[in-house]
Design a protein around this nucleic acid. Structure first.
Lengths: 255, 255
DNA sequence: CGCGTCATTGAAATACTTCAACGACCGTGG
DNA sequence: CCACGGTCGTTGAAGTATTTCAATGACGCG
């Protein structure tokens, strides 16, 4: 397995999440070589603009480490995060025009960049590349639809709980297979309070208060520098089942 | 027979919006023939379930006429519309598994249905089909991101204004080219108040009240059966520019 | 030490929801 | 034909979750 992968890519791709989870894993040797020969790495520190709204990006980027936020601004200065990119995710719309949102590093970020033309050429020639792109965009669409539900129908408490759980699951996904009894789960939020507010459609104060309430209830323990310890994951999940007590969820389909 | 059919589509495709705006327009003669030979039309009346959340749809559908709503339900019975499909749009995730939302006819609907396998086969073989799908899903993602901004950051008044404007633009798009002086624009909402509420992340009462306010201000005139006349489109647009009076939009990029 | 950013907390304001009642419309059946 | 019940939309009054405004504390850095 590992041996086979060694052929696929250059040495510095071996430990790259883009290979294990992202686009590069879908490539054959020839394609991987072609792509890696024109790729280069870029670093951005937290807060730096990777590219601005309205610009046509001249390259595609795969996220290697860190978190990238996609933001939109309103005329009054409000901002809304419309997506978060994690390692393995892709930045830039294939065959698209100007970007409709700006991409900003939420943490320190390492990107693997490829010229637009090369990726588009690869996609036009390779069935698997175009298929991977289609699947990836479809996944992003489904995530966006989940977020629409969150923003449209959830209370502040539920939004916070959802966010914490999603961060937990994205970093401790192995717990699903092996439910260790270590019920003290340490997570790193990687977002400031302001960014959480922009992501969850709340104000910074509401975010702070809801986190304080969870802390007071003993559900979480807030650590320094955007870390937190989850002591009662069930309590977080319980807030999401907003069904009325003593009554199952209404199964009536509204027409 | 065969020679006579070498034009792009069957007779009943001629006036079809899927041909002019949707997938079928991207096909060559051979592909169009292949697809149309296995397609069949279905009708749904308003409120009927086209397919349910969690099921794997066995066919893809293109919307010919009417509006389809994609909905998600919460355990407490709340619902949220996560997308609206208009004529030319496509229903069903290519190469996807179970549907993550249910599709319900919002109005009377006519669909053109194709077996999954045929569309997937076509996409695997034809570059343009897969490209069209990619572009279409990417468009849907961008629309979803715009909706995230609406749900995350807009007031009820702004949501209503945005919705009315979007309906107006989708039916009177030609006005952009030729700004006729007929400033009485008649639109058909094609959504009930309940559906508007589910779409905009509000309650039915709030929707009703906001529409009443617009009517009282003379911005719109509410007609029967989900129609309305827009008298001051500028007023609707003005509510979206929520910039503070006498002051331009803040251009400071928050980090 | 002082300064800036970020987070927390309190009190007041408000936008939206919830609860409740009523009116309009429409097909059904007497 | 009109009375009846159903759905849908409107409106009012009360309640509440969240925002807004404002002040303070914690932390890192020159």
């Amino acid at each position: 397995m590992k041996w086979q992968r060694m052929h696929k890519a250059r040495a510095n791709c071996v430990a790259c999440p883009v290979l294990s989870q992202g686009l590069c894993g879908a490539l054959n040797d020839q394609e991987a070589l072609r792509l890696s020969s024109v790729s280069w790495h870029r670093r951005f520190s937290a807060g730096q603009i990777i590219h601005a709204e309205g610009e046509k990006p001249s390259y595609f980027c795969a996220v290697m480490t860190g978190v990238v936020k996609l933001m939109k601004s309103l005329p009054n200065g409000d901002q809304q995060i419309v997506g978060l990119l994690l390692p393995g995710d892709f930045l830039g719309r294939p065959f698209g025009g100007d970007s409709r949102s700006s991409a900003i590093a939420a943490t320190n970020v390492r990107l693997c960049s490829f010229p637009r033309a090369v990726v588009e050429g690869l996609a036009s020639e390779s069935r698997v590349v175009e298929r991977w792109l289609l699947d990836h965009v479809s996944d992003e669409l489904e995530k966006a639809q989940d977020w629409i539900v969150l923003l449209g129908r959830m209370s502040a408490e539920q939004r916070i709980a959802t966010f914490i759980l999603s961060v937990m699951r994205s970093t401790h996904f192995e717990d699903a297979a092996a439910p260790k009894s270590c019920d003290e789960i340490l997570i790193e939020l990687s977002l400031s309070r302001t960014e959480m507010a922009d992501y969850l459609g709340l104000t910074i104060e509401t975010v702070s208060r809801q986190i304080a309430r969870l802390r007071e209830r003993g559900v979480i323990k807030v650590g320094a520098s955007r870390t937190m310890i989850i002591r009662q994951p069930e309590a977080l999940e319980a807030t999401l089942e907003a069904a009325l007590p003593g009554e199952g969820p209404k199964s009536t389909v509204r027409i």
